[in-house]
Amino acid sequence: MRSYYLAKIREQNPLIHNITNIVAANYCANGLLALGASPIMAVAIEEMEDVPAISQALVINIGTLVGKEIEAMLLAGKTANKLGIPVILDPVGVAATQYRKRIVAQLLEHIQFSGIRGNAGEFAYLAGVDWKVKGVDAGKGEANLNSICQQVAQKYQTIAMMSGEVDVVSDGNRIATLHNGTPMFPKITGSGCLLSAISGAFFAVADKSDYFNAAVECCSTYAIAGELVAKSLKETQYGQFYTGLLDKLAEISAQEVEQNGRVNYV
């Protein structure tokens, strides 16, 4: 696979606006900095017209919904759409509660998302496919994951990025399966949230017509970084993996991505 947008992120240092959850905010900010982007973690509704205007992408993560945050997400998303900057949705645990279902439905109704990044359980719910979920975890089901990802992309006219043992990316027509990664990812809090955050950086430096390839490169880069870090660790060294992932995002090269990437198009 090619690596084109990683270098552009480091050259352009795009400002990525994150409305994310309190569990992962610090990690997402540091991950974006490590990669070469610049984070702004503004959540006050009073700023939701000003901040998108100075940003190159917006990432909305519903992990910990509180107070006026929903209103802020809606206003920021609508503003970003008017400005033409990409908007990414991370529908954390959307199937876990009726409240999350209602909020995600509201966001999807009023905001056009350039990308949606989530796990199999979240995507199955969005696609209307039967699935057993446990809180914010991916859960289990029998449906075809490639088909679920493609359905989400088609239903919401977006780039769907589904994380798992095998990552899947679809634009509704094309499907890419990504075979890098490590079982250590789900053992640290915020790993999925960070991927959503850095997808904002990849989309920020890409043309709209090439968001699919930007998403494939983003998910591959992230999975490869984790895979390379895990190789030098014991399988229980989650703390070392947590910090090592940030270090690797800072140093990973386009050559490493191209040499290690295992992408199939189906």
Score class of each variant (00 low, 15 high):
125 Y>Q: 02
214 A>M: 12
193 C>M: 09
245 L>Q: 01
61 N>I: 06
211 Y>C: 11
154 Q>T: 15
231 K>S: 10
164 G>M: 02
161 M>A: 15
185 F>T: 04
228 L>E: 11
118 G>A: 09
17 H>V: 06
166 V>M: 06
47 E>R: 06
168 V>P: 14
149 C>M: 12
211 Y>W: 12
259 Q>C: 01
199 S>D: 06
129 V>T: 13
77 G>N: 08
14 P>T: 12
242 Y>H: 11
12 Q>M: 13
116 I>G: 06
63 G>W: 01
111 I>D: 05
55 S>L: 03
100 R>Q: 02
143 A>G: 07
119 N>L: 02
94 V>H: 01
92 V>I: 14
135 G>P: 10
6 L>S: 11
123 F>A: 14
64 T>K: 06
80 A>G: 10
80 A>C: 08
16 I>V: 15
233 L>I: 09
39 P>W: 02
241 F>N: 02
49 E>T: 15
130 D>A: 15
248 K>I: 00
106 Q>V: 03
83 L>T: 11
97 T>R: 07
196 S>T: 14
144 N>Q: 07
240 Q>T: 12
231 K>E: 14
257 V>K: 08
95 A>F: 07
159 I>V: 15
235 E>H: 05
178 L>G: 11
179 H>C: 04
108 L>Y: 06
219 C>D: 09
251 E>H: 01
202 F>G: 14
33 L>N: 13
168 V>L: 12
252 I>Q: 05
211 Y>N: 13
172 G>Y: 11
119 N>D: 02
106 Q>K: 15
182 T>Q: 03
188 I>P: 09
147 S>W: 03
179 H>P: 13
257 V>A: 08
145 L>D: 05
123 F>L: 12
169 V>K: 04
46 E>M: 05
107 L>Y: 04
117 R>V: 07
143 A>H: 02
46 E>K: 11
99 Y>H: 12
176 A>C: 12
220 S>K: 12
247 D>Q: 03
189 T>K: 06
47 E>W: 07
152 V>E: 04
223 A>F: 03
20 T>N: 04
248 K>Y: 01
66 V>L: 09
145 L>K: 13
83 L>I: 15
92 V>P: 12
92 V>S: 12
53 A>Y: 02
216 V>Y: 15
61 N>M: 09
65 L>F: 08
57 A>D: 02
201 A>T: 11
207 D>T: 03
102 R>N: 15
180 N>S: 05
191 S>P: 05
224 I>Y: 03
51 V>H: 02
173 N>P: 07
51 V>W: 01
247 D>F: 00
163 S>N: 12
215 A>L: 14
258 E>F: 01
156 Y>K: 00
45 I>M: 08
180 N>Y: 01
191 S>E: 02
44 A>F: 09
172 G>Q: 10
236 T>W: 01
195 L>F: 10
190 G>M: 03
38 S>R: 03
19 I>P: 14
59 V>C: 10
211 Y>T: 10
117 R>Q: 10
110 H>A: 15
154 Q>H: 05
265 Y>R: 10
238 Y>P: 06
228 L>K: 09
229 V>R: 05
243 T>N: 09
3 S>R: 09
145 L>Y: 06
44 A>G: 15
81 N>T: 05
84 G>M: 05
162 M>A: 13
123 F>Q: 04
42 A>L: 05
193 C>E: 10
60 I>N: 08
90 D>R: 00
111 I>H: 03
189 T>V: 13
229 V>A: 07
143 A>M: 03
83 L>S: 10
